[in-house]
Amino acid sequence: MKFLSNFTIEAIATIIVLIIVVVLRVLFTKLIRRYAKTHSNIEHRTNLVIKYIHLLLNIITVIILIIIWGVQKKDLLVTISSVATVIGVAMFAQWSILSNITSGIILFFFFPFKIGDTIKIFDKDFPIQAEIEDISAFHIDLITADGERITYPNNLLLQKGIAIVREKIEDKDFYD
């Protein structure tokens, strides 16, 4: 009981922050799902973006709670800089993964293609025309007209020119 009386303000602030986080998670989830419905995006991609947003909110929440509970600024800065250094070294080694995840989020919000579309990727060495079979956080799966399966990294999609190919209209004989 003595613990609660000594840290009443911190406990109340923690409860308020947790309530705000829950409300923000629900709000962001609804906004992203509404955006996905209006842009005909698939549920799988929507769920990935929602997970990324929730992860970001959780990290911010932990930082806020650390500040609320009075961790000394000097200790906090040493801890954050140490963690940032370790994460920076790990991410530098894994820049491709981070690049693909970031590209996946950009593709979700700003690119008009979806599963089932046929796209043409303008690569001078290896041009590709294929149908999109799946879009994930790291890559898209393509199937060519010959049945060849291609896994193409998301970050390369942002670097190359892409065209959405319209379905060919079959020539039909018209009789009088």
Rank of each mutant, 00 (worst) to 15 (best):
I150H: 01
H139L: 07
I150E: 01
I143D: 01
A13H: 03
T79C: 12
F28S: 06
T61K: 08
K37F: 02
V22F: 10
T85K: 12
I132K: 05
V22Y: 11
H39G: 02
G161K: 14
I80P: 03
S81W: 06
K114R: 15
D117M: 11
D173H: 07
T144M: 02
S40D: 12
V89H: 02
R34A: 15
N47Q: 08
Q94R: 06
I50G: 00
S96C: 02
I140A: 01
I140M: 06
D125Q: 09
T38N: 15
L57K: 08
L142T: 02
I64G: 04
V78R: 10
K160M: 08
S103I: 12
I97A: 09
I132W: 07
I19S: 01
Q94I: 03
A93R: 13
R25W: 10
V26A: 11
A93F: 15
F3L: 10
I115Y: 07
Q72A: 15
H44L: 06
F92K: 05
V49Y: 00
I164H: 11
D176P: 09
K51M: 04
L57I: 15
I50W: 00
I60Q: 11
A145C: 02
L48G: 00
I115S: 13
E167Q: 06
I66M: 13
D123R: 13
V89M: 05
I9M: 05
E131Y: 02
V62H: 11
I164S: 10
R34H: 14
L27G: 05
F7N: 03
I67C: 13
L158W: 03
A13L: 10
I59C: 05
N47H: 04
I60W: 11
L56Y: 06
A145T: 07
I135Y: 10
R25L: 11
K74N: 15
N100W: 09
N154V: 08
P127E: 04
V26Q: 07
N100V: 10
V86F: 11
V165I: 11
I101P: 04
G104C: 08
S5T: 14
V89R: 01
Q94N: 07
P112F: 10
A130I: 01
F111C: 14
E167M: 03
Y152K: 12
S82I: 12
M91L: 06
I63W: 13
I63E: 13
W95S: 13
S96G: 05
L4I: 14
L55W: 03
K37H: 04
Y175R: 12
V23H: 07
V49C: 00
T29A: 08
V78D: 09
K160N: 15
S103W: 13
F113H: 06
A13E: 04
K114G: 09
D117E: 12
F108G: 00
I121V: 11
L48Y: 03
A36P: 00
K30I: 08
T8V: 09
S99I: 04
A90Q: 05
F126A: 12
Y52M: 04
E148G: 09
V83F: 03
